[in-house]
């Protein structure tokens, strides 16, 4: 580490910060871009189709991977339409409002085990532990994410869009509560809320076992948070055209779309951190930096795939069904989970 930073004439801290920034911002972006390919090819395989396999670089098809580049180029070259009656400022702002919270979400999540080198301790998360924000940060950022949808919906000045935006806001309010309760139960049993401490507390037994109910609730809510299929009311293409995205085209659409996939990556990382032991490897006490990063990546990618997998399995809920589920099923379930763990802690003293 010291030699590397000396080569670049940087202090180790600065060097490590740059590395972390690269990983935390470029990592989810790359995975998100790849996920668009995974989604299209994966859905094709699930539905006995073939999927996009025609895009080629110099005649090499590379199992359809150039499609990502082709889509990006296409999005850049398309005409950028802004509806005449739209609120111009907000219409331009909305993709950014969707994108920034999505990218920020990874900031506190540790993507590997902290290691020591040359007398320094290097933490594998953008914000070092003990920043006082801990897991509250992704929740706060996640709460801001709905504004991208809302602003996009409202500024389009389109009835479908506004319907989509209203659905998104109502959905968010009804899910956020049960999600927070599920997370609070984890804070309570771990006695900490910093992700590093949470992972430390999952030594030996991952949270998914004692918190299985909470995991189910959290997982379900994550689908709603990321606007994924069983709950993608904001888009709902069979009901309200494309919901909040109806008026968007070209790069603005691509940005919103990309941020949705980044959300998916962040949601997977959250699930892994909270319930599946973060960078922990089964039966290995101290995996070290490389193995821990690989383990975290593998788990995150697995959950990204589960998101895709569920999307192509489960049909969309009806809107009132979601409301009923959010308030009458998920909230009581997470309350039960919370009270159960509180009771257990009380019995143990």
């Amino acid at each position: 580490m010291d030699t590397l930073s000396a080569l670049l004439h940087l202090s180790p801290e600065t060097f490590w910060m740059i590395v972390k920034i690269l990983v935390v911002f470029a990592g989810p972006l790359t995975i998100a871009a790849l996920l668009t390919w995974v989604e299209r090819r994966g859905s094709a395989m699930i539905q006995d189709r073939i999927g996009p396999n025609r895009a080629a670089i110099f005649g090499f098809r590379l199992i359809g991977l150039p499609q990502i580049a082709a889509d990006g180029i296409k999005a850049f070259l398309k005409e950028d339409l802004v509806p005449a009656e739209a609120n111009k400022v907000l219409f331009w702002l909305a993709p950014l409002l969707a994108f920034i919270p999505a990218v920020l979400g990874m900031a506190v999540i540790p993507f590997g085990q902290s290691f020591e080198s040359g007398g320094h301790t290097y933490h594998m998360s953008l914000l070092d532990p003990g920043n006082g924000m801990g897991m509250l940060f992704p929740m706060a950022i996640g709460a801001m994410a709905v504004y991208g949808v809302l602003v996009a919906a409202w500024s389009s000045n389109n009835k479908w869009s506004i319907l989509g935006g209203m659905r998104a806001s109502a959905q968010m309010v009804s899910d956020e509560l049960s999600m927070s309760l599920a997370v609070i139960a984890i804070f309570m049993t771990a006695g900490a809320y910093d992700p590093h401490d949470l992972i430390q507390a999952q030594y030996g037994l991952w949270n998914v076992v004692p918190h299985f109910l909470g995991f189910l609730v959290f997982f379900t809510c994550m689908f709603a948070e990321t606007n994924r299929l069983p709950f993608d009311f904001a888009e709902g293409e069979s009901e309200i055209v494309a919901g909040f995205l109806t008026e968007y085209g070209s790069m603005k659409f691509a940005l919103i779309y990309l941020s949705e996939y980044i959300h998916l990556v962040v949601a997977s990382a959250l699930i892994v951190t909270l319930y599946f032991g973060g960078w922990r490897v089964p039966f290995v006490a101290n995996p070290g930096p490389w193995l821990s990063v690989a383990s975290f990546l593998a788990k995150t990618l697995f959950f990204c795939w589960v998101f895709v997998w569920v999307r192509w399995t489960v049909p969309r809920f009806r809107y009132d069904q979601l409301m009923k589920m959010g308030w009458k099923v998920l909230l009581p379930l997470s309350l039960i989970n919370f009270l159960f763990h509180a009771f257990l802690m009380f019995r143990r003293g």
Binding site: A44, M45, I46, Q47, D48, R49, I50, T313
Partner: peptide, 18 residues
């Protein structure tokens, strides 16, 4: 769905339905 996925994963492209 995963069964379908696996079946298609191990079938070469010309042999699928499409």
């Amino acid at each position: 769905t995963f069964g379908h996925f696996l079946r298609n994963l191990f079938t070469s492209t010309p042999k699928r339905y499409t």
